[in-house]
Write a protein that binds this DNA or RNA. Structure first.
Lengths: 160, 160, 160, 160
DNA sequence: TTTT
DNA sequence: TTTT
């Protein structure tokens, strides 16, 4: 469909170290658990309240998988952009389960480190559109931030 | 926590008419089912492919509940902004279920009609800047984090 | 610098047909004039007021230049994403002038038609990734993606 | 007009301390100068290049003016959201000038501090410590719709 | 004028 | 379940 936008933008902190794994076709994927938090004052009690929301993030964009692996750790603060995708799966008991995730498709999305970790600098962004994966599309997905080739070293790709 | 952002922006179409219901404390809530869609060409097969994503939207913002009720119908195209929230619930069998929704909290979020449906025009949300300055606008831009009034009725604040 | 975001998102209408021109290095550029509009009720007078804001948009992203040329016309409604850039120039009298524009760099940004103009259909999405095509950088923004396509030659350029 | 969006989102650093001033009607206004920066590798020369963009930000939202005054300083990193507005003015020579600014209208926009300045002072040590120190929190900055303090009840109405 |  |  045209005229469609599916965009999620988060600023939050990693609740644990990134989990990096490989698919059988040789692609690396990163999973992040990101916390965002809302604070507000209860209208009745006047109490200050806070709610933390946890977001499952799945990264297929190779450049950003590298960034995760090299620079992000539990506690890192990031800005990221992706799209919403709900996935159905079946648990051991055979029950249908649904999981909604923030997905950074190949060649798309955005990931920026917001705290100056000594162990590394945030690289630029990558833009990697793999044929095999990306329900991607423009809308929404386009990768903001793009670029940096494919098959380059991170060194080449990282900004600065 | 501060220093946090949790934002979803969608442009899509309603898969069915809005569902409006009331809570026991007298607030109206609207539920929308919004489709966004990605289209791409398979890099290997060259085939054109498409994936539709369905988004559950829950609206607590009274003004936008009104907009839903009055102007939106199955098929309407909208721009909307909200935040991600995952809710846990238990089904009849006692299984834990999680549902991730795009939420427009009271006084927050954005909802704009993008097609000029004959049955109505989208109204706006309010804009309260001082008269002297604000190119402000409502919909479309509406404000995240912003708000409406201050003890005013929605009527006064709503554009239109 | 990393940890930076420069993003503009507009939904508005073209005030005139797109202007397409070529640079001496053979690249085509499109210029758009986009109107967004704020409506609000004056708090003191209670009057309904409206302010239209005009945005100068400059498109270096080749795909979107094509989209402009083929599908957009005066009055078209679009969603677009780019970054802010301020350019200095000198008028005939030798005065310094500054112009702030919304820029869609090569391989970046987003442009989606929101009204189904008869002269063109918006089609699928594009995925521009090719290593050679990345001057990209991250925060920049460019979103990738978009597209249109569907039976026209644009389609060939898309996705690959 | 409806169906319109005029949104700017920036993550950047203040080039100088916020400038706070009052209008004759007793409202306080803050002006910020925010730098964002793009880094990329020149495709031909292979050189790393960088371009810094400066953004003029004008804040009418009282809550955020307070945040600026209390917590922001030259060098502070912020996330902010506003809308584009171009203003015409005349210089001493009588020449027409235009200035495009990112405006946070009253009751609108967003401003969040992204570096945990303990008391809005710059300086501090360069120790970023371990990840666990980053649960963020800098108290103070209104994050994401969070409140509109300043002694009105808006504070109470917000949240969920 | 910031920042890395 | 929408839309093109």
């Amino acid at each position: 469909m045209s005229g469609s936008l599916n965009r999620v933008m988060l600023i939050g902190n990693l609740g644990r170290d990134p989990e990096i794994r490989s698919t059988q076709d040789g692609n690396k994927i990163a999973n992040l658990s990101i916390a965002t938090s809302d604070t507000w004052k209860d209208r009745n009690s006047g109490e200050r309240r806070e709610r933390t929301e946890w977001h499952r993030v799945v990264i297929f964009n190779e450049h950003f998988v590298d960034v995760c692996e090299k620079f992000l750790r539990k506690g890192s603060k990031v800005y990221l952009e992706g799209q919403l995708a709900t996935r159905k799966w079946t648990d051991q008991q055979g029950n249908d389960k649904y999981s909604t995730e923030v997905v950074l498709q190949k060649y798309r999305g955005e990931l920026t480190m917001l705290d100056g970790r000594s162990e590394g600098q945030q690289g630029g962004s990558g833009d990697y559109g793999g044929p095999e994966r990306h329900s991607g599309n423009h809308q929404g997905s386009g990768s903001f931030g793009a670029s940096f080739g494919q098959g380059n070293d991170l060194d080449d790709e990282i900004g600065f």
